[in-house]
Design a protein around this nucleic acid. Structure first.
Lengths: 174, 174
DNA sequence: TAATCTTACTATGATTTCCTACTATCTGTC
DNA sequence: GACAGATAGTAGGAAATCATAGTAAGATTA
């Protein structure tokens, strides 16, 4: 699973040691940031590997899932970017791919002629369901983490996302 | 901070709701995986923004830091790849950039002629220290997370990394 | 109505990462 | 010593992301 085979020690533990020895400071933050980076790398690789037979990658799946949740199966591209927190040009690229594969179609917005809607096709809707089953099957790449840890991570990172301005926190974290 | 402005609700909370409504399963894993993905995105953006004035990005900084910790200031490229868990070709690219900027030099391995060593230059060593200070200053992008949460995330993700085969876990997690 | 500002999308280009394939070199075995 | 297999690094190419800048169209204000 690891790109280069396992190391005989935990590289982050080792980094903590070196960091401390050199008096570099912010050891806990460094350690957590590195852990998150590596965790993301692991997840993305597992998820993309699971989706590969379906011709999807995670970002495209996310767009399909989002469309699946709407009543009409359509969403303005700009809306998709907001929800997935990606750059407008990335949305264009993602929808380009999905459209080329016949999973979504671009349709004009009925009243706002600036806006383009992405509309889920039947194939797109079916594939979204199939992909979801696949991802649920591998637990979204989180094999090795207990249920308690899932909740703990989720909650701890929520404050980070809130502080980053992802959403307005009307009601307190609790 | 958020690419498109804050949403009036937590998008992951919303995804949980939709997921549950559609009976899609693995909600906790989906939620945690999405949180980790988004957290990584936030961190990387903050870190790269902080390093940008120094002409660095996170991956190049990581290589510099790694070299700083060695006695000789040198490391085989393959070793760097193992430690940073990236593909050999990514190491080539990273060292190319650092070398072009005069922060490291490629030197031949004294005995193994297959191996190339990356050697930290004086400028490289100085910049690593400077960059570390910058990153410590922004807490590695983790503003908004309490010290307790840092440790909690670190620990929870350690089991994920261990299960992914990053390192051989000689001694149990405890 | 006209001028200005904002929003929506996309074309183009830079960066980073990975994969596959290749060469050079070392290691182990006969 | 010779040969098969493993290891180290790189070239070339694909894919994803972002930033900049441009066009089109809606919204605001005078």
């Amino acid at each position: 699973m690891s790109p280069n085979g396992p190391l005989p020690f935990d590289p982050i533990e080792e980094a903590r040691r070196n960091w401390t020895e050199h008096g570099w400071g912010a050891v806990n933050a460094m350690s957590a940031a590195t852990s998150i980076t590596r965790a993301h790398q692991i997840l993305l690789k597992r998820i993309d590997a699971a989706l590969e037979p379906l011709g999807l990658v995670f970002s495209r799946f996310e767009a399909l899932a989002l469309l699946s949740f709407t009543r009409t199966g359509t969403l303005p591209l700009s809306r998709i970017g907001q929800r997935l927190q990606v750059h407008p040009t990335s949305v264009t690229n993602t929808i380009d791919r999905l459209e080329a594969d016949g999973l979504v179609a671009r349709v004009p917005h009925p009243t706002d002629r600036r806006t383009t809607l992405a509309e889920l096709t039947d194939r797109g809707r079916e594939l979204a369901v199939k992909a979801t089953a696949v991802l649920a099957d591998i637990d979204f790449g989180l094999d090795g983490m207990g249920v308690d840890d899932l909740g703990v991570v989720d909650e701890a990172l929520r404050s980070l996302r809130a502080a980053a301005g992802d959403f307005t926190e009307d009601h307190p974290t609790t």
